[in-house]
């Protein structure tokens, strides 16, 4: 994959180094965003990075275009107002698994259902890292976290499937190890009119990696390589074998009218 040389225009280099830990996947995903924006050549003032709370929530500080850092989980509700008042603005919501699956779960479902013209990048690091590594809805069953020292007793939530079911136009999931796929998904999502969602399974060596004895950044990358399977391969596995893998790939790509289009059609005088 080629590198669009202007990707640096989308980064606020003065704010770097960022606060993320060594080996944290947030920076890989944020770079994927910058690369896609450079490739699509979108003017800076036509872009908004909206974030929530947590490690991923600091991303807005590192971009050179408009940024919005809302209250925890409410980001997509704020974006609803932004989208309908600034229809030409490209809105990228860079959220965490708490923003998407827990405190913001309801807003995510409704934003997808309305098919707002927004691209969500969900940084799924399987835990609440900023607060010290507690489990989140996406933490797999049995995983160790600071609030599940003997293994998480709850089933995990599959945010990508939920969003697909809720009506989004584009849904895909991958990891920070699979950067070609990641960068491509981000680009496709940005090209989608209507709601698009990319789940990025991301390394958190500081908490998830350490608690679950996966290891540091490089080890977590290896874990993603070995633990995930493309959707088609995953589907062929037996139910039992499936327990050992996480699927990645595209779930949905369709072309429903976005919210403003359906709204305007029904409000014509």
């Amino acid at each position: 994959m080629d590198i669009p040389v202007r990707y640096g225009d989308y980064i606020d280099w003065d704010q770097l180094p960022h606060l993320w830990c060594p080996g944290c996947g947030n920076g890989i995903a944020l770079k994927g965003v910058a690369l896609a924006l450079a490739e699509l050549n979108i003017p800076l003032h036509k872009l908004l990075l909206a974030t929530g709370i947590g490690c991923s929530g600091r991303a807005g500080n590192y971009v050179s275009f408009h940024s919005f850092d809302g209250t925890h989980g409410r980001t997509l509700a704020f974006c609803t107002g932004i989208n309908v008042t600034q229809p030409d603005l490209k809105i990228i919501a860079f959220l965490g698994d708490g923003d998407c699956g827990a405190i913001g779960g309801n807003h995510l479902l409704h934003a997808a259902r309305r098919n707002l013209n927004i691209t969500v990048i969900e940084i799924n690091n399987f835990n609440y890292a900023m607060t010290g590594g507690q489990f989140s809805p996406t933490t797999p069953l049995s995983s160790i976290t600071s609030t599940s020292r003997k293994g998480k007793a709850e089933y995990a939530m599959d945010t990508a499937s939920l969003v697909a079911e809720a009506g989004a136009n584009y849904v895909a999931s991958t990891t920070v190890y699979h950067t070609s796929q990641l960068n491509n998904f981000i680009k496709e999502a940005l090209l989608t009119r209507g709601f698009s969602f990319v789940e990025v399974m991301s390394s958190c060596p500081t908490y998830y990696g350490r608690y679950n004895h996966i290891g540091d950044g490089p080890e977590m990358m290896k874990w993603f390589k070995e633990k995930t399977l493309p959707r088609d391969k995953y589907e062929k596995l037996s139910l039992e074998e499936k327990q050992n893998y996480i699927e990645r790939g595209k779930l949905v790509q369709r072309n429903r009218e976005d919210f403003l289009t359906t709204y305007k059609k029904r409000r014509k005088k």
Partner: peptide
């Protein structure tokens, strides 16, 4: 809509005020 504006019925009041703040930041 008659005044050229938009009405959105949100999923709850948390979202309603959030959308209002978003719209204000949209100008």
């Amino acid at each position: 809509p008659k005044a050229g504006g938009i009405y959105v019925q949100m999923e709850d009041e948390i979202a309603a005020i959030a959308a209002v703040i978003g719209a204000s930041l949209g100008g």
